[in-house]
């Protein structure tokens, strides 16, 4: 009884739809850590909860949108960014955050990702990268490391993975960071920073998937995976994103891009103003 009371008093309870708990995620999954960091960021920034929209695609992490107690939408597989683009442009007063998976954002939804980054749409994309399609039972995807075992790479993966932060930077994102689920405080700080920055931001969260990917690939328990993250992660702020490939012996983490570039929304508003002023002048003549 005492324990339940304490649980309902969790400082982040008000940010969650508690009637939807327990969530679907496995014990030791990194998704909860990601969500916790996000909610803590909202809390510390005192974000107006009526003015934030969380959008997800399909996948284990895709369920995040359904758990946060703000306006939220669970789109079709891969389309979260395109949906979010519509929301942000139609109502620029809203803060729009996409929380989705590596498969959702970079396989089926890859095209939307690069184009939203190129346009510098003012949305914040947070990706739970667990190196596989968790929801469908552990098939390989665009981030699966070479040689890894998944249910559709029974002889080992022969596809080269994307380096997501490099892809984001090359596509035009104005803020790019990578952390692992171990770097809770730094992840939260990055989310805060991105929420305060105008433009397309991308945060990759290397996330344990103890039930499927880590088990198939003999990485041990969730705790073992976290220990391993600690051992091989290397904080290098400002490092060239092209040189941040994840290898067996190193996960380069940090804030890799933080630049200024006018957002699509800003350019659209400026153009609209100019066009309308010209029309008024014409009318006055």
């Amino acid at each position: 009884m005492k324990q339940t009371e304490r649980m309902t008093q969790h400082p982040l309870t008000k940010y969650l739809r508690s009637e939807r708990m327990p969530h679907i995620w496995c014990e030791g999954c990194g998704n909860g850590i990601l969500l916790n960091s996000f909610l803590t960021a909202l809390d510390e920034l005192k974000v107006d909860l009526d003015k934030i929209v969380v959008v997800s695609g399909i996948g284990c992490i895709g369920r995040a949108a359904g758990y946060v107690n703000v306006d939220s939408f669970h789109t079709t597989h891969g389309r979260a960014i395109a949906f979010a683009t519509g929301v942000k442009l139609a109502n620029p007063d809203l803060q729009v955050v996409v929380i989705s998976g590596d498969g959702d954002l970079f396989a089926i939804g890859g095209n939307h990702f690069i184009h939203a980054a190129r346009r510098n749409i003012d949305i914040k994309v947070i990706c739970a990268n667990n190196f596989n399609y968790g929801m469908t039972g552990g098939q390989y995807g665009p981030t699966t490391p070479l040689e890894a075992w998944t249910t559709t790479t029974p002889y080992g993966n022969i596809e080269h993975p994307f380096n997501l932060v490099h892809l984001a930077a090359a596509s035009g994102a104005v803020y790019v960071a990578r952390w692992t689920a171990l770097h809770v405080r730094r992840l939260k700080d990055s989310i805060k920073k991105s929420l305060q920055k105008e433009g397309f931001s991308f945060i990759e969260v290397i996330s344990p998937c103890p039930t499927i990917f880590d088990r198939y690939n003999k990485r041990g328990t969730a705790v073992d995976v976290m220990k391993w993250f600690k051992l091989i992660s290397n904080v290098k702020h400002g490092h060239d994103p092209a040189k941040t490939e994840i290898t067996k012996s190193q996960i380069m983490v940090g804030e890799f891009v933080d630049v200024e570039r006018p957002s699509y929304g800003r350019l659209l508003r400026d153009m609209t103003k100019k066009v309308q002023e010209k029309l008024k002048e014409k009318k006055a003549k």
Partner: peptide, 12 residues
């Protein structure tokens, strides 16, 4: 993406 964006706009 076009229709996804249109659904998003409709929801605002």
């Amino acid at each position: 993406g076009s229709l996804a964006a249109v659904i998003g706009a409709s929801y605002t």
